[in-house]
Design a protein around this nucleic acid. Structure first.
Lengths: 141, 141
DNA sequence: ATAACGTGGATATCATGCATCCAGAATATA
DNA sequence: TATATTCTGGATGCATGATATCCACGTTAT
């Protein structure tokens, strides 16, 4: 029930790019500025490209650019690009056929948690985070 | 960002016990009814005992009883007994001194998610889950 | 005395998050 | 055309933690 490092990397990369939404940013640049292992960043960027959040250009002076404005990119999009569909609980999946209906006592609660999280991630754009980040960056640590 | 199997086991065990809040329930009984590996359940019960959610009695006819009524046991208590303090994001912990203030762009959002989750878990008791579970158990699967 | 049951420590298994490496394709520039 | 730069994609390694098992021991009801 924690934010994964990978997701953190992704968000950091995107907010970083969001500061100059027009420029192209190379992996090397992002990696250095955000302190993310280059080789791992490559994997992450791949997912963001596939999900249509960023566009990539190869060759010298290549790199990545946001495909939308920071105001149009929802945190939910980022989350789902990295983690897949948001889902708090695995049930009736795979081989688990949830014979115990006791089990279902929990489902409504986790659904509730899930929905409230989705709502927040849906309502938060990169732009929002950039704004907040600015105000946060004045506080110590 | 998912409910762990262990937490699921804990909740299942407690809701099961909540159906007969007065009786003692042996691990064997719980294990069989809830389909939880006995030896693993032992570990889980240990934590619930330590956190004061459940009282244990050894010897023949021993077992576990809820220490409070289902209406007094919050899901948050269960969560924290199993997972420890609720915290979405690790930052400024350990060796990570969060030098990147870009990073902080995220914090407010995850805090928000965290608080909304805490609120829900705080507002939900075993009793609530038992009630809901009853209404849920009528739907297929 | 005996059988039933929880306790607690050691240990095994396994999945997965995180990370690294490398050969290859694309492309800008000279 | 040659070269340097950058992304691509697949294979692989590593470490951590969740899940699970085992067993010797202490307790207690009968």
């Amino acid at each position: 029930m924690q934010v994964s490092k990978t997701l953190d990397y992704a968000v950091r990369s995107l907010t970083y790019m969001g500061n100059d939404p027009v420029l192209r940013h190379s992996m090397k640049e992002i990696s250095e500025h955000q302190n993310i292992p280059l080789s791992y960043l490559a994997k992450i960027m791949r997912r963001l490209v596939k999900k249509g959040l960023v566009r990539s250009m190869v060759g010298p002076d290549g790199g990545y650019v946001l495909r939308k404005t920071p105001g149009e990119i929802k945190l939910r999009d980022v989350y789902e690009a990295i983690e897949g569909e948001i889902r708090m609980v695995d049930c009736m999946d795979k081989d688990n056929i949830c014979v115990l209906y006791d089990n279902c006592a929990q489902l409504p609660v986790w659904d509730k948690v899930q929905m409230s999280m989705i709502k927040i991630l849906d309502d938060t754009t990169l732009q929002d985070m950039l704004n907040e980040g600015a105000s946060m960056s004045t506080r110590p640590n």
